[in-house]
Simulated scan of single mutants.
Amino acid sequence: MLTRAAITEVVERGLAEDAPWGDLTSEHLIPATTTARAGLVARESGVFSGGEVLAAAFAAADPAVAVERHLADGDRFEAGTVLATVTGPARGVLTGERLALNLVQRMCGIATLTARYVAEVETAVARVEQAANLPAGTITRTRVADTRKTTPGLRALEKHAVVSGGGHNHRHGLSDAVMAKDNHLALLTADGTDLTGALRRLRRRLPHTVHLEVEVDRLDQIEPVLAGGADTVLLDNFSVPDLVSGVAIVDGRATVEASGGVRLETIGEIAATGVDVISVGALTHSARSLDLGLDVRLD
């Protein structure tokens, strides 16, 4: 969840980086009494995210700057759309411009890329329904989820952008859930420790509210992990045929997640295997910023 505290921390740190001793250009070139009205304009189509961040960035530069948002997070837009209108002291508008654009362009880029992945999954699942002569909506849509592969310091913003694009959040960080990955298991079993027994002992120590996910990279690891009490089994870098086999082995006894090298070109066939969740690092580590601009309006 994107909190006010998280937004404030990011924009204050960003402004301190960009204007540690003020905005020399605006303060010496623009009269203090000058006001400005500017539009946040999309140079390309996409999905909007970061409305609160936009307002907070300008308010950090000057509390007298007001932002009127014309779209809600998650709304789609076309090139040329005015996403928001910014008004107030010109110096404040100019000082906050780069920070606001940097953050919102990144968030819109993530939201837009996420929406593309989600659309690929929906198309694939609809195709499976049609092939089986099932009514639309019969098969539960596979969730597209993010990962911890985020920009340090911007995780809350980037994960919010994923939700704006129709995706879902995985755990926020290491403190949210227990997720035993390949390196954990390698260290755990190096001395011959029984995996099922180790997971059962872990399960007994955990509060009942804590989710337990275990990553596997071979089909023969699934049964021992299920016997250990895993809530989610992560099938990492499995081939499509092995994903089908993995889903059949789990057979509803746990949530099945697929991950590892997922691309737009492959996510549809992965979704068609019947997995419950597909986690995609590319949503945040490979999204490009969307092209937005702040245009001063003289009308």
Rank of each mutant, 00 (worst) to 15 (best):
D18S: 04
D220W: 02
F48W: 14
L15M: 14
G268A: 14
V53T: 13
T196R: 12
R98E: 12
G268K: 06
G167A: 05
R263T: 15
A271R: 03
A190N: 05
E265S: 12
L283Q: 00
S286Q: 14
P241V: 00
I222C: 12
L2D: 06
I267F: 14
I270E: 04
T114A: 06
G92Q: 14
R297M: 06
A64Y: 02
V214E: 15
V47D: 11
N237K: 13
R218F: 06
G88L: 05
A227G: 15
R141K: 07
L40M: 06
G137A: 09
A132M: 11
E27T: 01
I110P: 03
D146F: 03
G14Y: 11
G167N: 03
V296N: 01
V233M: 11
S49W: 07
A61R: 04
E265W: 01
L199F: 13
D251L: 09
V86M: 12
H160T: 00
A36K: 05
T266R: 10
G260H: 13
L99G: 09
T8N: 08
L202G: 07
E52A: 07
E257L: 04
V277K: 01
L294E: 10
V210Y: 02
A186Q: 15
L206S: 06
V214G: 14
G14E: 07
V240W: 14
V125C: 06
L154C: 02
L264R: 11
A90C: 08
G166M: 10
L157G: 09
T3A: 11
E12W: 01
V162H: 06
R203A: 01
G192A: 12
G229I: 00
A5P: 01
L195F: 01
E44H: 04
L283F: 02
R116E: 15
T196Y: 11
G261W: 13
P152N: 11
H208M: 07
A111F: 05
D176Q: 06
R297E: 14
N133Y: 08
V233S: 14
T142G: 09
D194M: 05
E12P: 00
H285A: 02
N183S: 07
A156C: 03
A282R: 08
D23C: 13
A230R: 13
Q105D: 02
G281S: 03
I139M: 08
L2W: 11
S45A: 14
V144T: 02
G74Q: 12
D75M: 04
N237M: 09
L101M: 05
T87S: 11
N183D: 10
R253A: 06
V104K: 15
P89W: 01
N102E: 14
T209G: 03
G14Q: 10
G153F: 11
R127C: 05
V277F: 08
R116G: 02
V244T: 12
M107D: 15
L298V: 09
R148S: 05
A126M: 02
L188F: 06
S45F: 01
D299V: 03
E17S: 04
E12Q: 10
V178T: 05
R204Q: 05
I110L: 09
I222P: 12
V280H: 08
S286K: 11
D62C: 02
Y117K: 09
E17L: 03
V275R: 13
H70V: 00
V41F: 14
A56Q: 05
A124Q: 14
E68M: 05
F77N: 06
M107L: 15
S49G: 13
G246T: 03
V121K: 10
D242P: 03
